[in-house]
Design a protein around this nucleic acid. Structure first.
Lengths: 296, 296
DNA sequence: GATCAATCATGCAAATACGTATATCAACAC
DNA sequence: GTGTTGATATACGTATTTGCATGATTGATC
């Protein structure tokens, strides 16, 4: 075999993939931290190498050709393999420096993480911690975070999870609000109160209904997808909101209502990739998080 | 997320892979058509990016670390995806120029292909044809050839195969040899003749035994893994060899022995990848081969 | 041992790829 | 129509990567 086996630049494949997925060279350039001319040249070079038109230049936009579409599936497989390489490489990395991304709900990010991060900074000064304030269970699988603090047990077999604690939630309102609208004495009193929603309100109602709460969607007159914003609204007297007790306890001007009511109990799971758990710096952060969250 | 998501150069992955598989930077450089310093720098850069030692520099040789070994499996998956990309890209390529690799046994490469190649050159002057003289059924799967001429039906579902012809084989010897050792009149006469082996001789004996051939391994006093070399030995009077009739017919100084014996019939299969069959240049070569081989 | 062959590492010049700046174009709003 | 926005393509200086030449080191062989 004489031939210089018709091959291509693997980086150009990545350029093609992100361009196809982002829809434009410019967007792909932003995504990859490169520039539009670079991406343009790389895609053009790939087309040259493969002898296949990948995009149709129509107007100001690029359209994937059918040939490009056929390739896309296999190119994605290549990226998935590359992601796995990055994953197990991170796991093999024994340095206690570099970046670790932790994801937690925004409320926990603000109320629970800071002292832990301070401890971590003392233990490993060269570690850089990213806090991803989000509640998406997929974050770990997409590798947008290395360690997740979640309230559901993750079911993927690739993940390892540790139940660090059972947390308790109660209903709270600001003193200002309660003075104005009255302190509820019984569950039935809640009927005419305002509630503040965040997250999946219908699911929460499903949970509360069997407990005799006389409230429905109409009681949720204010809300936010952000738990932090919802809590702030509660502080400012917009209504009653559920909250973890350890967060509420450190919030001034807030009172627990119906103190005799059984708490809403929910688990705190600490989760990471199985592969990553072999990494020393991931393990350090994981164990530190576990220690602090358990003892609280 | 602030971070420039810790990533790495995909080409460096390929450098690492070939280095690991070839066993040295120099060998990998030869394989990839690059130089040893380049490969060395690329692997070093990858180690830096991943934060993982991949090779142990021990003496004049590199040894894969355990971390490197862990990565290897995923890196291989990446290359397999890349190979698939190359495969379907070739299939999408509609140019009637570029390279097409044909594999056939060395005997067929010499005796059957030349006129076909002449025809192809006339039909598509810009086509470059590589002839891979080999009988390895795996060649197509390893992508060392695009089209294969084989005598067994390929069973992989990824391949498409066309039975172009049933060929006939007989036993031949040079006139010189027959004059010296005598012309056999019956199968029994073969007992004291010399045979020339090539390929899988035991398997051929298995096939001939039920037909009453009184020969065994001891009759094969000369042989070669190359059918072409074996045939040349036959021409030079070393003994009796089986051969396809169309090849033998064009070889001067060669006679068929026991002309009344039933021929050994074997199929000629033309095979290519399913993906490649959509390519115009592959199709052209495939169809031209089929035409010539059928009509012979 | 001394030689030889084959490896990896390093310094420097050349080739290549990249980013900045800019031109061009298409779609949309007013 | 005109202006604006967001896209791709091109020109050119710069930065990076590559290859060549060379040196250093190792392991095998005689």
């Amino acid at each position: 075999m004489i031939d210089p086996k018709t091959t291509f630049d693997w980086n150009h494949i990545r350029a093609f993939l992100t361009t196809a997925e982002e829809g434009s060279l410019s967007a792909a350039a932003r995504q990859l931290g490169q520039t539009q001319p670079t991406l343009g040249r790389q895609v053009a070079a790939l087309e040259e190498d493969l002898g296949v038109m990948l995009f149709e230049r129509v107007g100001r936009t690029l359209e994937l050709t059918v040939a490009g579409g056929e390739l896309l599936e296999h190119v994605r497989a290549m990226r998935e393999a590359a992601d796995r390489v990055a994953l197990v490489a991170s796991g093999q990395n024994q340095d206690v420096e570099g970046r670790v991304a932790i994801t937690a709900s925004d409320v926990y990010s603000v109320h629970l993480l800071p002292p832990i991060l301070r401890d971590l900074r003392a233990k490993a000064p060269r570690l850089i911690i990213d806090v991803v304030a989000s509640d998406d269970v997929q974050d770990l699988m997409r590798r947008e975070a290395d360690i997740a603090i979640r309230h559901v047990r993750p079911e993927q077999p690739d993940l390892i999870a540790r139940l660090v604690r059972e947390a308790k939630g109660y209903f709270y309102a600001s003193t200002e609000y309660l003075d104005l609208r009255g302190h509820p004495k019984t569950v039935a009193d809640l009927k005419n109160h305002d509630f503040i929603g965040s997250g999946d309100v219908p699911r929460m109602l499903e949970y509360l209904k069997p407990m005799g709460f006389p409230i429905d969607l109409d009681n949720f007159r204010t809300g936010s997808d952000s738990g932090l914003v919802a809590w702030e609204m509660c502080k400012q007297g917009f209504g009653i909101a559920p909250m973890a007790d350890d967060v509420a306890d450190t919030t001034p001007g807030i009172e627990r209502i119906l103190p005799d009511l059984a708490p809403i109990v929910f688990p705190i799971w600490l989760t990471t990739h199985r592969e990553l758990h072999t990494s020393r710096r991931i393990r350090l952060v994981f164990d530190t998080l576990a220690d602090h969250l358990t003892e609280t």
